[in-house]
Simulated assay, not measured.
Amino acid sequence: MYKILANTLFLGKDVYYLPDCHSTNQLAMEMLKDKKVAEGSVVITDHQTKGKGQRGNTWESQEGKNLTFSIILMPRFLEAMDQFQLNMVVSISILEALDGISTGLKVKWPNDIIHEVDGKIAGILIENIISQNKIESAIIGIGLNVNQRYFRIDTATSLSNLSGFDFDKHVLFEKLIQKLEFYYLELKKGNKKIIKEQYLNKLYRYQKLADFEDQVQFKGKILGIKDDGRLIIEKETGLQNYYAFKEVKFL
């Protein structure tokens, strides 16, 4: 069971735990529409049977081994065009919560937390409800591979695989929620520059020449992120391109 968090202002004050469910994001969305939850509520499960990733992808998670949960936020202070700010907040919060566990952890644009060599350890799925060009509410879905040792795909790994020992999921959960609340409140204060600097500091392949593919393979360097979340890549030719999600592939 997951207890209500004592060391936060509003995140994690209502924690809805289910031994298993189809999708924490979907359940959180249903609860939000039924007006059964307040901002900061968390839906968490030990076994997600139909976990969702971006664009219909699925999320593999062994029962009882990982953290799979969704947080309900109401960031009405954010314009719809600034919704990538939430992505940056969640990404840096996860990385700071995992600080000291393993070197080489990065955020891979736009929504994955990876180890530079061993693969993906966490995914983020944010689903926003927009009203009058503001973000009325947001469901923040997080899947973090904690103690799972074996995966069907070789591009996934876990904290346990990286470190060689198992972790207390409850301790990690509390630390992650605390970090997320801190950076969410920083965003609410308008400290976007600090958040973006932190994000770029942890961005995979930032300012490094690497191989990519859009319609053709090319070498390029990530220069930054546009305010709308598009990735800025400078090709070897000197041409700068702006890419939305799925428009460029990391090779």
Rank of each mutant, 00 (worst) to 15 (best):
K175I: 03
I177F: 10
K226Y: 04
F250H: 11
E247P: 12
L209V: 11
I177Q: 05
I153G: 06
S158N: 09
K235R: 11
L223D: 02
L239R: 11
L162G: 05
H170P: 00
V146L: 05
I195Y: 04
Q240I: 13
D214N: 04
Y243G: 07
D228L: 02
F250A: 11
Y183W: 15
K179D: 07
Y150A: 07
K249R: 14
L187W: 06
L176V: 10
K246R: 15
T155F: 05
L231I: 05
L176M: 15
F151P: 06
I177P: 04
F212C: 11
L172S: 11
T157P: 07
L187V: 06
G224S: 07
G190E: 12
I177S: 08
I233M: 01
S163E: 05
K226L: 09
S160L: 12
S158A: 14
K179A: 10
I177G: 14
K189V: 00
F173P: 03
Q148K: 06
Q148N: 10
I233D: 02
D168C: 08
Q215L: 08
D154G: 02
K196F: 00
L231M: 02
T237G: 12
Q178D: 04
I232H: 01
N145H: 06
Q215M: 03
H170C: 07
K192L: 06
I222G: 06
K221P: 01
L172K: 08
D227H: 04
L172D: 03
E247C: 02
D227A: 12
K208Y: 12
T157E: 05
Y150Q: 10
N241L: 11
L187E: 08
G190Q: 11
K246H: 08
I222C: 06
F218N: 01
V171T: 14
L159E: 02
G229Q: 09
S158G: 14
R205H: 12
N147A: 09
K235I: 01
Y183Q: 12
D166M: 03
K246D: 04
K226S: 11
F250N: 07
Q215V: 06
T157H: 08
S160Y: 15
L187T: 08
F151R: 10
T157R: 06
K192E: 13
F167M: 00
V146K: 03
S163L: 00
I225K: 06
E236W: 10
Q217A: 14
L231C: 00
F218I: 04
S160E: 13
G190A: 04
Q178G: 11
A156V: 02
K193N: 10
Q198N: 15
G229V: 14
F173N: 07
L239F: 09
S160T: 11
N147D: 13
L203G: 06
F218M: 03
S163H: 04
E247S: 13
Y206G: 02
A210Q: 09
E174Q: 15
Q178E: 15
E181Y: 10
E197H: 12
A156M: 05
I225S: 08
D154P: 06
A210S: 15
G190C: 09
I222M: 04
D168K: 12
